[in-house]
Write a protein that binds this DNA or RNA. Sequence first.
DNA 1: CTTCCACGGGAACACTGGGGTG
DNA 2: CACCCCAGTGTTCCCGTGGAAG
Length: 406
Amino acid sequence: MDNLFDDLIYEGRIFANKEVLRHAYIPEKLPHRERQIKSLADILSAALKGETPSNVVIYGKTGTGKTATVKYVSKELERMGRKMGSKCFMIYINNEVFDTQYRVFAYLARIFNKKVPLIGWPTDMVYSEFKAGIDTDDRCVIVILDEVDRLATRGDGALYNLSRINSELNNARVSMIGISNDLTFTELLDPRVRSSLSEEEIIFPPYDAAQLQDILGERARMAFNYSALNDAVIPLCAAFAAQEHGDARRALDLLRVSGEIAERSESKTVTEEHVRQASERIEANSIVEVIKTLPPQSKIVLSSVLLLRRERNKRRFSSGEVYNMYRRSCNHLDMEPLTQRRVSDLVAELDILGLVSAVIVSKGRYGRTKEISLSVPEGYVQPVLFEDYKLKALVSNIKVKAQMTL
DNA sequence: CTTCCACGGGAACACTGGGGTG
DNA sequence: CACCCCAGTGTTCCCGTGGAAG
């Protein structure tokens, strides 16, 4: 604090600068990632010598600092490039958003001032536009593909074309950095693409509790006012996040929300109790968020499980039971039911989202089923689900059922 | 060993929203 | 303007398969 008023404004407040706890913030220092930074810098340094750097794949679970590290290194590389007069372009693409070959090349071509419509053209035409766009100059273009695993099935053409583009260029050079949280995704790729893409590999192991404490401590110094945190708060946040495979993002969220809760309850400091509340609230929020954004048909499937819980006094149901209830619900809502096959996929998606758990059970003579059960508290699910105006009609259904069982 | 059932992979299809061409 | 081409998405259709009860 270098101003008299700063002290007054911040007196008694919890946060000094909340922004440093947000996901978008890239810190100056990345604790416990020195090795990975060094490896990546070594590989990419070829770009400064006018060579083509090897392609790299970076593996690591969510919140292990992959994206932050890559962004940090690319910023440094671009700066060095400017200083040394070699042209380095780092292009960051999130394949969660650009998840098909067309979209990837359209995005890249647009960066090099080519006019490409968002859809409509044949893909090879978009690809040629991109090629023409970069080849106008002697330069090194490094394409960062965040969440590359998204490209593995539908957009593998993009990886194939990128991996062989250099032989078709006269002036520019292209390399790729793939960022993936799935260690096995390359198995889905064409062998040629696989070997070309992963010439180098860097692994980001999860942080352990002690490392998370360092990271949190670093940020907390900037984010919170002096002595706004009880001593146990950071270790507790670290411990919670370490249980969830060392997710630093999660840990930072937890710290931020704890602070917000403390602030709202007009407490002078953040306590362990606030952390516990924050943990619960983050959990509940993420479930609610997931359910809200579910496509309508999935919501009906999910509510079918809910309705079954009411009707029978059970927790787990066979896929047959769920499908029957689903058909009845569709009928009730005046909607076309999907086929069993499709519903089975929807159930699998709900399973991946962690809303239900589906276990394959073989009942010998009586065939094979999935046993489906709700894996989140019913209280979280129901209000959100029936908030959807289309599903409102099912609420009355529940009430009728409840009366009948009385 | 047979038998039964849904599972789940893959092909095929329908549909959408955009292009270019004559 | 009508018409066909194209990528992408969601769905249905078809079918081989796993594995314990009988």
